[in-house]
Design a protein around this nucleic acid. Sequence first.
RNA 1: GCCGGAGUGGCGAAACGGUAGACGCAGCGGACUUAAAAUCCGCGGCCCGCGAGGGCGUGCAGGUUCGACUCCUGCCUCCGGCACCA
Length: 825
Amino acid sequence: MNGYDPKAIEPKWQERWDRQRAAEVDLRNDKNKYYMLMMFPYPSGDRLHVGHGRNYILGDALYRYLRMRGRRALNPMGWDAFGLPAENAAIQRGVHPRDWTLDNIRVMKTQFRRWGILYDWSKEITSCLPEYYRWNQWLFLRMLEQGLAYKKKAPVNWCPNDRTVLANEQVLEGRCERCGAAVEQRDLEQWFLRITSYADRLLAGLDDLPGWPEKVKVMQRNWIGRSEGAEIDFAIVGAEGPLTVFTTRPDTVHGATFLVLAPEHPRVVELLATHPERASIEAWVDRIRSTPRIEREGEGTPKEGRDTGARALNPATGEEIPIWIANYVLPDYGSGAIMAVPAHDGRDLAFARQEGLPVRLVYHPEGRDGEATALAEPILGEGVIRGCGDFDGATDGPETIRRFIAWLEERGSGRGKVTYRLRDWLISRQRYWGTPIPVVYCESCGIQSVAATELPVELPYDVELSGREGNPLSRASAFVAARCPRCGGEARRETDTMDTFVDSSWYYLRYLSPKDGGRVFDSQLANRWAPVDQYIGGIEHAILHLLYARFVCRVLHDFGLVEFEEPFANLFNQGMITRFSEKTGRIEKMSKSRGNTVSPDALIEEMGADTERVYTLFLGPPEDEVEWNDEAVSGAHRFLQRLWRVAERVGSAPPTAPADAALERLRHATIQRVTRDFERFKFNTVVAALMELLNALTRAVEEKTASRLCCEATLDTLVQLLHPIAPHLTEELWERRGHVESLLDSDWPVADEAKLKRDRLTLVIQVDGKLRDRIEVDAAWGEREVRAAALGSVKVREHLGGREVAKAVLVPGRLMNLVTRREVS
RNA sequence: GCCGGAGUGGCGAAACGGUAGACGCAGCGGACUUAAAAUCCGCGGCCCGCGAGGGCGUGCAGGUUCGACUCCUGCCUCCGGCACCA
């Protein structure tokens, strides 16, 4: 045998796995099925670095483990292939997005292969190909038909850099999630999906997901943002129709001393119609409306407002109160209008003080009477109602709120109402590289769906990608020109494309029948294989992708296409890999832009993919953020080299030797530990346990303390347990040991309880909880015998110092604690 | 501000309420070598002590317990999410 040479071994096994189609699953048999899935990647064109490697290596280790445990594991892979970078590459380098993307996919595939990662490539999907995206269009049309897709003119988030609109979820702190540019507000006609009508189901469903990290569920709950309260109608003096506000505190309606509308509120124009300074106020409204979100909604943003001059009637007091417009009221929450109760709300109080508006107490704090005019802080959660008739004496709490709602409903001036923070999902994008929205505009028939038989609406290949303002598709006249499916007349094709999160909202179902040209997916297979048993991906999708996928799953459920409502039974979020960045001078997430990436190519060249895999998994718990240490990689490499060397020498062990039982015990204990840790995703301690076993085996072989048979059995076990983590090396050793079948098809070792037993063991003796001695005891001994033996120890007697033992606690197999203090009674 | 999560050697970390620091990196000492690399063996929390040994130690302060890194209460620091959501 030669030394350990990963450069020879790794390609050999990669080729063999390819040839054997090692990961291909026949879906007709779903016995013992396990659907595992990595979030499909965007083929970005940047070569994958070791930080990316973590996800894929983690998934592959799980996959191989499942296979060895006898599961029929499905592990497909595909490409989230639409998106802006492809279009930007086209603008910058003149490559067509399609060619650029498909090239990147080829490169990424070879990188996966070099890592020794197994996917069922017969199920591959690529979202930018019409075979896939036609079903996005189909889904859209079904949703349009059901009223779940609609078009409306609304103030939307506009990214001036990417020159497209964004969904709410894609705006982080007022900035574009992709490029970081400050998002502006524009009024545009856009397509939306009605996710809000699923808000309650999406919220309730979270309670049925025990296999999801609590953190993700909390984030989704906050995002959906359910709040209970009431709508209250305020009549406008001298105008038709009431102004409706939403409030969570209908019990403070008597304290509402003015109303405030968002500048976008539809009645602003009407209320300002007769105002003497109408022009200047409208100019102010326009300025607020076009302010970037980050400036308008930032915490430190000063409150600004204008009095409309119009007045409303407080339905509780009958009093006339002014109607204001202010920047601190959000247009797209509740009804875009609030009743201001300065006495009991900090924001209203600040605004009232600034503008000199009146403050009226509803809840009067005990012993601090008549302070309303001097109030510096709002009264929250204390006090008793006064001056409100029948409600007098009530205290702040849900019961009082319920009474007020009942009272408002009785009088017809309000009703209980639940509001969500969640907005409808804006899916229109003014970009080329996405799924065309399949509708046409006809002069006489209006918006018309493209007929199902006309799908897919294919993205034209030849378009001019110049980076100019506006969607390149709208300048592709051959694409825009269409026929109205209803009247046959001339029509204009929709040029908006879909948000790429539409692609990823149902792709896990398409993997099950990727080539089916006749339907979106095979429902029967979907009901047998889905939901996905284990989904793995980054925490950055906690809201965006995972919420959309849960929504679309329910839609498909309601269409009768799947029986389940939750797409992913278990979710695992791996942590990211960090490294010191010369550029920023800090330890940061590994990424090309921060210039702190480590390329796997050189690493694999030098030490092999197995070394990278072992190191990556050994680095720390998979869910934690871990720092890449260039020097520490060699430890993983040394481990594999030592394994190789011991495999070469194992044959030299003697036929019989004294310490077989000890090595056997460790072998079985390791099987138990490793199996448990694989189940818990603790790959780092799996590696540690295997290092310990190897250390023991090496010692036994070197010192000739265990027999050849025993050493070989230990080596075989070690090789099997290590296979999910270092697949190439272990396959090679397994083959050299004379095994014929692939390790993937070998049976996972089972720990033998009997082998774990021992006759004598070392027990720790504590005196008053402090370790004082270790003694050899018979495993069968009970408390009495152990206690006698413990008292036989000189050290123990010294520490007892003649005191009486009040109590002796025996933890079998571990320790005995001798307590001298008496219980205090 | 609200909601999560985390604080353990020089570093990455481990530890069903039961011997804190397994495993590894870096370091130190030694073997092999003309030498170096590679490899192998040994040491390694802090303090006192020549030593045997003893004391202290898991962010801080308390509590529960025979026994607490682990459970409870209060605080500090860091990280993440949300944030004028009425």
